[in-house]
C-alpha cells in the first residue's frame, strides 16, 4: 500500500470514529476530525501530513487509554463510572510510524 492510499484509508477510519464519538464528546470528535482532515491532506500532499496525523493519533490513543484506565481505577476504588474511549483505536496509526522507523525515504 503506498503512502497516499494509506493516508486515505486512515482518514476514512478516523471519520468513522468521529461519527461514533459525536454523541459522547464534542471535543473528542473535534480531535478525531482534525486527525481525519490531516490524513486527507496527506493523501493529496504527501508524507509530512500523514506522519503528523499519525503522531497526533497515537498521542490521542495514549491519552484515551490512560483515561480509560483512570476511569476503571475510579470505578473500582472511588465513586466513578468506567468509560470506553474510541480514541484508543488511534493506535492503528502506529503502522505508518513503524514504516518510518524501517527507513522511509523523503
Amino acid at each position: 500500500m503506498n503512502d497516499k492510499t494509506m493516508s486515505l484509508a486512515l482518514a476514512l477510519i478516523f471519520m468513522a470514529l468521529a461519527v461514533l464519538e459525536a454523541r459522547n464528546s464534542v471535543l473528542n470528535t473535534f480531535v478525531l476530525l482534525t486527525i481525519a482532515a490531516t490524513y486527507f491532506k496527506g493523501a493529496k500532499k504527501g508524507y509530512a501530513y500523514m506522519i503528523a496525523a499519525s503522531l497526533i493519533a497515537v498521542c490521542f490513543a495514549a491519552v484515551s487509554g490512560l483515561s480509560m484506565l483512570a476511569s476503571v481505577i475510579n470505578a473500582t476504588f472511588f465513586e466513578g463510572q468506567k468509560s470506553f474511549e474510541v480514541g484508543i483505536v488511534g493506535f492503528v496509526s502506529l503502522i505508518p510510524l513503524l514504516k518510518l522507523r524501517r527507513g522511509h525515504t523523503l
Binding site: 471535543l27 473535534f30 482534525t34 482532515a37 490531516t38 491532506k41 503528523a52 497526533i56 490521542f60
Partner: peptide, 11 residues
Amino acid sequence: LGIPIFFSVMW
C-alpha cells in the same frame, strides 16, 4: 490545519 491541531493538542 495548524490551529485545529493546536487545539487538539490542548484538549
